[in-house]
Simulated scan of single mutants.
Amino acid sequence: MTTKPLPPHGSLSRHKYHGCKCRTCYDGFNAWQRQHNAAKRGDTYSGLVDAEPVRQHLLQLQAAGISTTKIAKHLGCHPSNVTSFVRSTGAGRPRRRRTTPEHAARILAVTADDLLPGTVDSTGTRRRIQALAAIGWPLRQLGPIIGVHPTWVDDLIKKDVTSGQTAHSVRRAYEQLAARNPERYGVSKVSVQRARRRAANLRWPTPKYWAKFPDGIDDPHFTPEYGMTKPERLAEEAVWMVTVAGVPRTEAATRLGLTFGEVDEALARNDMRKAA
């Protein structure tokens, strides 16, 4: 029986696959490792390209309120295939610094317009800003966090529609700040008290209230009963039954145990509120 001769000393195969530990094989392996690492840092290693442009593009999309999970869903790939460009995805999995040209091109082709609607109902945006004010965040100081001019925040709670990008930015700010005490993040005690006082006077629900109704905060048909007395709640229910459900005023009054005059007064206040 004949045996195949071993590879020469100093070759990668002799050291790596045949276990030779002589100095010549160690030197040959170290030389190969240096060449291999240099190729990885260059532009010719297995056809991979620098991932930094991809990372910067993803950071811009995140600044617009678009998560890497949403981008991955749009591309039809696993979230880690996108998130890994921005940060480490676990122990022993450092941030990705190189990728294939094809994968880079797919991610770079994604734009905010692909994932954000042009305009959306502003109910959720308005309620999240009001809830932050209710725990002491002044509207003007929310501007830089949301990414709009400080004087524009007050306008956001008056609009019926807003841009998809702004809605996402407000949602992200809400998630970051809803459980934080403003005074611990540089907001003066006077400003906190002023914001809370205004919110209390206008009956703006707090984040704790909305935590009980997670689906209600974005629902324009959901009427928060925060701070309402029982007569006020019945009046709001009467308005909903007549204006949304189409129940006759007389029937609404009978169901709720109200007089016809009380239902008419509630409807009149609702009309005045809308006009204002």
Rank of each mutant, 00 (worst) to 15 (best):
T3Y: 08
P5A: 13
P5C: 03
L6S: 04
L6F: 10
H9C: 11
H9P: 08
S11Q: 08
S11C: 08
Y17K: 05
K21R: 14
K21A: 09
R23S: 12
R23K: 14
T24P: 01
T24Y: 02
C25W: 00
C25H: 01
Y26H: 11
F29K: 14
N30E: 13
N30L: 08
A31P: 09
W32R: 03
Q33G: 03
A39E: 15
K40M: 06
G42V: 07
D43K: 12
S46V: 02
G47L: 10
L48A: 07
V49F: 11
D50K: 10
E52G: 00
P53D: 07
P53G: 09
V54L: 10
Q56S: 11
H57W: 01
Q60F: 02
A63I: 02
H74C: 04
G76D: 12
C77D: 07
S80G: 11
V86C: 11
V86D: 04
S88Q: 10
G90T: 01
P94G: 06
R97T: 14
E102Y: 10
A105T: 02
A105V: 06
I107M: 09
L108F: 10
V110T: 11
V110S: 06
T111L: 09
T111C: 10
A112M: 07
D114M: 06
D114L: 11
L115D: 12
L115N: 02
L116M: 14
T119C: 09
V120T: 13
D121H: 03
S122M: 04
S122P: 03
T125S: 11
R127Y: 13
Q130G: 00
A131L: 04
A133F: 02
A134P: 09
I135V: 15
W137M: 12
Q141T: 04
Q141Y: 09
G147H: 11
H149Y: 08
T151F: 03
T151V: 11
D154G: 14
I157H: 00
V161E: 13
S163D: 07
T166H: 07
A173M: 05
E175F: 06
E175G: 11
R180L: 09
P182D: 10
V190W: 12
V190I: 11
S191E: 13
V192N: 03
R194C: 06
A195D: 03
R196M: 15
A199F: 05
A199M: 03
A200S: 13
N201E: 14
P207V: 08
P207L: 05
A211P: 00
A211R: 08
D215R: 15
I217Y: 05
D219P: 04
P220E: 05
F222N: 09
F222D: 07
P224R: 06
P224I: 04
Y226Q: 01
G227I: 02
T229M: 06
P231I: 08
L234V: 04
L234N: 09
E236Y: 05
E237C: 06
V239S: 06
W240G: 01
W240R: 07
M241W: 01
V242T: 02
A245C: 10
G246K: 11
G246S: 12
T250G: 15
A252L: 01
A253M: 00
L256R: 00
E265H: 08
A266P: 02
R269H: 14
R269W: 13
R273N: 12
A275S: 14
